[in-house]
């Protein structure tokens, strides 16, 4: 089979100790049987390791942070498109998705395809809206509520008891064992991600995750469940193993059938001792461990690109159970000139 040459823009090159999904997504694309992918990295910071990984990222451009707004992003993408003729962009950060979703039609008219959830799908899975989401799609969700001021922390003891989980709008979650701790996390997380803060009932059990891909029409194109077998001190997966978990697969199928999810996603769930599944979070994009799916027989990044380009594809049916990933870190040697180029010209 001859492989088609395409150019794909990918964000999330922050392959650090708590990595972004960019590099794992790119590795899937590089292993594609259908495409020869030229990879254009889109970075926010000159220190994102992917910028310097020339064996997987062909060229990188800096793009403005999401807080600069859609117009700034579009202007920059127009420039990059002029240089590179992008076929597809895969955004990999939660915080940038709003802008990309809003811009998807404009990008399409420029010839750049994406495969993103709709704004409605994106919004209704927000942490703050999760209880309503759970009710709508028949998935159990731990009790939670939004707070906008530290004064509200006093009332939490009656409502949730301690410990409880303090979560940010986009990222970050910490377990607080006392009101003092809750206040400290409130400050820390709201300082970084703004308000509101989400307070969630603490649900003990085993965390199980699923990386999935919805076709936008109600079908689950691919899904692989995983349990973290080793975590870093930040709670991020260090190693994990694919599971045979029918119940979790059913939940993913039910959700995708219900909301017609389009694009990559991750379900973070707690399986309690009584084998009940509680939804903790839905990430509206591939997780950083998505390469485990590729490694166990389901190349989700490739499938996403094919769907973005309008191909109809058959859902993946199988994956290898008991496949593991073990993360490692790698010190790249980088010439100062490269850092100078990316930080002075915004390109490398």
């Amino acid at each position: 089979m001859t492989k088609r040459n395409i150019t794909v823009g990918v964000t999330g090159l922050n392959n650090i100790d708590s990595p972004g999904p960019g590099i794992p997504v790119i590795r899937g694309l590089k292993e594609s049987k259908h495409f020869n992918c030229r990879i254009i990295g889109l970075s926010y910071d000159a220190m994102e390791p992917g910028i310097y990984m020339h064996e997987v990222v062909d060229k990188t451009y800096q793009i403005p942070l999401p807080s600069a707004g859609q117009q700034s992003l579009l202007t920059r993408l127009e420039y990059i498109h002029q240089q590179e003729k992008l076929d597809v962009i895969i955004p990999n950060f939660d915080a940038e998705l709003y802008n990309f979703i809003k811009l998807q039609d404009t990008l399409k008219s420029m010839g750049i395809s994406t495969f993103l959830p709709t704004l409605e799908q994106f919004e209704e899975r927000h942490k703050s809206a999760l209880p309503a989401f759970g009710e709508k799609y028949g998935i159990k969700v731990p009790k939670s509520r939004m707070i906008n001021s530290m004064a509200e922390i006093h009332s939490l003891a009656y409502e949730f008891g301690y410990p409880l989980v303090v979560k940010g709008k986009f990222y970050d979650a910490s377990v607080a064992y006392s009101p003092d701790q809750a206040m400290a996390y409130f400050n820390k997380i709201s300082g970084k991600w703004g308000l509101p803060i989400i307070i969630q009932q603490y649900t003990p059990g085993t965390e199980v995750n699923l990386t999935g891909l919805g076709d936008g029409k109600g079908k689950l194109t691919g899904a692989v469940p995983m349990r973290k077998t080793y975590i870093t001190d930040k709670g991020k997966a260090w190693a994990g193993v694919t599971l045979e978990d029918r119940e979790l697969m059913k939940i993913a199928e039910k959700m995708v059938a219900g909301n017609k999810w389009r694009g990559g996603f991750e379900l973070e769930m707690i399986r309690t001792d009584r084998n009940e599944y509680y939804l903790i979070e839905i990430n509206p994009r591939f997780p950083a461990w998505v390469h485990l799916a590729t490694g166990s027989g389901q190349n989700h990044p490739e499938a996403l690109v094919r769907m973005a380009l309008g191909e109809d594809i058959n859902p993946y049916k199988r994956y290898e159970v008991g496949k593991m990933f073990v993360r490692y870190s790698w010190d790249q040697i980088v010439d100062l000139k490269e850092f100078e180029n990316i930080s002075t010209f915004g390109e490398l």
Binding site: E340, N341, T344
Partner: peptide, 15 residues
Amino acid sequence: LSDTGFVFNPATGDS
């Protein structure tokens, strides 16, 4: 000093 306007202090590693 680089003509690009990039300045590097080799003693501290700051740019």
